[in-house]
Amino acid sequence: MFSLKTFRVVALTEATTFLLLLIASVLKRTADAPIGVTILGPIHGLLFVGYVLIALNLKEEQGWTSKETGFILLAAVLPFGGYVVDRWLARRELPAVA
């Protein structure tokens, strides 16, 4: 149903909106500009839920262990986590050099 490529796109987008949301939160406190949080909050929320659901759906297909799946899910709540997961997945896709 979902592909690894789709998951990687969602992971990068989720990580980016998370960082933008953190920046908007800081700006809201310092400049009293809530518009960024109001817009980015729901967008990031949908991407976060999508990230988790897609990751859980891909677990068996990709052969991820429970530990790997746990790290992938933990990355969703850490700044830059989606970028780390994307890079890890990109390395796994590279064919082994003999």
Rank of each mutant, 00 (worst) to 15 (best):
Q62W: 00
G45N: 02
L20H: 05
F18H: 12
W88E: 05
Q62K: 12
E61F: 08
L56C: 14
V84Q: 09
V97K: 15
L89I: 02
I39Q: 02
A11P: 01
G70I: 04
V9T: 11
D86T: 01
A96W: 07
T6V: 12
N57H: 15
G81R: 01
K5Y: 06
V84A: 15
L78K: 05
F48V: 03
G36H: 08
I35S: 12
A76Q: 04
A33N: 12
N57W: 13
F71E: 05
L89D: 01
L58K: 00
W88G: 02
A33M: 14
V85D: 02
P42A: 10
L21W: 02
F2H: 14
Y51N: 01
L40H: 01
I35A: 14
I39H: 02
L78N: 07
R91M: 13
L74A: 15
L53Q: 12
A75E: 00
L40E: 00
K67L: 13
S25C: 14
T30L: 15
T6L: 13
E68R: 15
H44R: 06
S3H: 08
T13R: 03
L58W: 01
L22H: 08
V49L: 15
G45A: 03
G70T: 00
I39G: 05
V37Y: 06
K59R: 14
D86S: 04
T16V: 07
I72F: 00
G63M: 06
L53E: 11
M1H: 13
P79A: 09
S66M: 13
A96T: 12
E60M: 06
I43R: 08
G36Q: 08
L20T: 06
F80V: 05
I54G: 08
A15Y: 01
I35K: 07
E93G: 12
I23F: 11
F80E: 02
P79H: 05
L22T: 12
W64A: 01
L19H: 00
S3T: 15
K67P: 04
A24P: 06
N57Y: 10
L46N: 11
T65F: 03
G41M: 00
F18V: 07
G41I: 00
P95R: 14
A55C: 05
V85I: 07
T65Y: 00
I35P: 03
L58C: 00
R29C: 10
I35L: 13
L12T: 09
L19T: 06
I35D: 10
R91G: 09
S3E: 10
V49M: 14
V85C: 01
K28A: 12
G70P: 01
T69N: 03
L74M: 12
N57P: 07
L94M: 14
G81C: 03
I72K: 01
P42Y: 05
E60W: 05
L27K: 08
L4D: 09
K5N: 11
F18N: 06
P42D: 05
M1D: 10
V10G: 09
E14C: 07
V49Y: 09
G82P: 02
V84E: 08
G63H: 04
L94R: 15
K5E: 11
F7L: 13
E61D: 13
